Simulated assay, not measured.
Amino acid sequence: MTQAAAGALVAAAHAAAARTGFRAAVAVTDPGGHLKASDRAGGAPFVAAEIAVGQA
């Protein structure tokens, strides 16, 4: 997975969350489970980023 593809997934997840009024933290990993991209929306709890990485 390229960095651009990971960034596009993060953007798509934030857009989907915004449509429902949800502020999310998003993490994307490669097939080996290595973190490729992550981002926390403004207003999302700080701990949400830790949780997103753990669930990715």
Rank of each mutant, 00 (worst) to 15 (best):
E50N: 12
A4K: 11
P45Q: 09
P45W: 05
A13L: 06
V26S: 02
G21Y: 11
G21C: 09
T20A: 14
G7P: 00
G7E: 15
P31C: 08
P31K: 09
G32S: 14
F22D: 05
Q3L: 14
A5Y: 06
K36N: 02
G33K: 08
G42N: 09
G21M: 10
R23N: 14
A27W: 05
L9C: 08
A12Q: 15
A6T: 04
I51Q: 10
T2A: 12
A48G: 02
S38R: 14
A17T: 06
A6S: 05
G33C: 08
A41C: 01
A24I: 11
A17V: 06
G43Q: 11
K36W: 04
A48F: 01
Q55F: 10
D39K: 13
P31Y: 10
Q3Y: 06
I51K: 08
G32L: 13
A44N: 10
F46P: 00
A13V: 04
A6I: 05
A48W: 00
H14S: 03
H14K: 14
A8N: 10
A8Y: 01
A37W: 01
P45K: 10
A48M: 02
A48E: 00
I51G: 00
A18S: 15
F46I: 07
A37F: 03
V10C: 10
L9M: 15
G42L: 13
L9S: 09
H14R: 14
R40N: 04
V28A: 04
F22Y: 12
A17Y: 07
P45E: 12
Q3A: 14
R40Q: 06
M1P: 07
G32H: 12
A4D: 14
A4M: 08
D30W: 08
G7Q: 15
A6C: 05
K36G: 03
F46D: 13
T20C: 04
A56H: 07
Q55R: 15
A12S: 13
A27C: 06
M1G: 12
V47S: 12
T2F: 05
